[in-house]
Structures are given as structure tokens and as C-alpha cells.
Amino acid sequence: MKIGYVGLGDMGGALARRLQLSRPLTVFDLSEAAMTRLTDKGATAAGSLGDLARDCEVIFLCLPKSAHVRAAIFGDGGLSTALRPGTLIVDQTTGDPAETRAMAAELAARGVTLIDAPVSGGAAGAEAGTIAIMVGADPADHERALPILHDISPNVFHAGGVGAGHTMKLVNNLLSGAQRVLTMECLALAQKNGIAPVDAVRILMAGGARNVFLEKGVGPVVERGDLGTGFTLELMHKDIDLACRAGKDAGIPMYFGALTREMYQLAMNLVGAQEPVNSAAVAIDRIAGSKIVAGS
């Protein structure tokens, strides 16, 4: 069985490298450099999306948004120019569940299966083989993908039908995104009352407010003023926006969700949409007059 991987950025690249430890891969990315990082380790470079579709029975995608997924599949020179019936597409993008279901229906008419399998745990978790994978697929399609997904990580969860993986990822990102900015606001509260942010983090980690952002995200910010790279404020805002839209479609008053989205919008406007997500701390410092970013 030949496997293709399209989209070799921070996350897709890490997932592909992990998968390549046990499966030969054919890869494609618009960036030569991103391709080289995989072909150096033995992957085969596809000349085009059509070539990749012709060669592979299972095709993974990991792109910024559902709009990119649609373009990669249905756009000019996209996969659909050469997709054969029976092909399985596994979308690891953090996508829009409604759009994912729409694309799956369009592909089903051509005998092609699309399932969603986004991940949570960061590029480091992908490289280490510990990342969480949440799958939206019919049970039979999930069974078909499972052996390959297990080669990325043993932490595979079948969330439900097509789109459920993307829904679960949005639920996850809303909760982690809200936790991040609430934690930052709380650190500003501690700091302006005379408690050093590093001390506040240490104390919170030992108490009932312990959370994953305190554990894995905030350290470099309060210790060294290191805001990290990669995942941007704009991407975080996009995920929370999608979560709020899904909430709206389900008739849920998204009080916390909408407020969280507006906080990220505010941060984007204050410090720049392309800044890394932890630069929300810079925005909090600016509006609160606090100093939670070390050295600021």
C-alpha cells in the first residue's frame, strides 16, 4: 500500500517524519525546503498533486485551513485530476467540520473516502509518537485507517462520523485557547499584586488550577520572554472562530467562547496576526499594565 503525505509544515512535517519511521512515503509540499526535509530521510518526492494521487491509495493532508484542503483536492492541478475510486484521504488539518462533511460527500460520489484525523499535542508530540489523534469516520473507514494512524501514535480516538474529529479538535482548541488567555490574565493579577510570574506559575502548578498551558506553554514566556514560534494568533483565532460557529449552528450561547475569540482578535490587532500565539501575553501586558513577559 502506497501512502502519500501533502502539507509538510510544522505539524504535517512532524507527522510525516513520524509515519516515515515505519512506512515508505510519497510527499508533496509547495515549499522545496519542506520537501527536502522528508526526501533526505528517504521519502519520494511527487512532481505534482496529480502524480501523488495516481501513485497512492492512502493520502494524508495537513494544511492551514479547510479552504486549502478544498483547493488541494478540487483546485486546478489538484488531487481530483487523478484520484481513483477506493482511495482513502485522511485530513489532519484543523478544519471546519461542515466543510469536511461537504467535501466527503462530494468525494463519495466518485468512490473516494475522506475522513478527518486532526491531532493535538504539538509538533514535539508528533515527533515523539505520543500525539492525540481524533478521528471522524464511519466505523469501517476508521478500521481501515487505524493501522496507519497507529504508526503515528497509539493515542487514536474514534470521535464519531465524518467531521467529528474536526469538531473535537475545535472543542479542544477552544478550551486550550481560553485556558491560555485566562491563565495570562491571572498571572497579570498576581504580578501586579507583587507576586513574580515565575513564582505564581510554580504555586499554581502545585494547586487546583494546574493546567496544560501552565505545565507546557508558559515557562519560556515568564522565564525568558521567549514567545516561541509557529502556531500564530491568527490560526488560534481561526480555530476558536470555527468552534464558535459550530456552537452557533448547534444553538449554544457561546459566552466564554465568543469572549475568548474577541480576546484573540484584540491581541491580533495589538501585536500582529502573524505573531506566535503566546504573544497574547504581550497584549495582556499592554492592556493590564502588567509584566508577565520576562524582560519586557
Partner: peptide
Amino acid sequence: PSRLSEAAFA
């Protein structure tokens, strides 16, 4: 950013 409007919408 429109926090009040979002709250009203909720």
C-alpha cells in the same frame, strides 16, 4: 473585537 455584541448574541 466586539465583546459586548458577542455577549448580546449569546
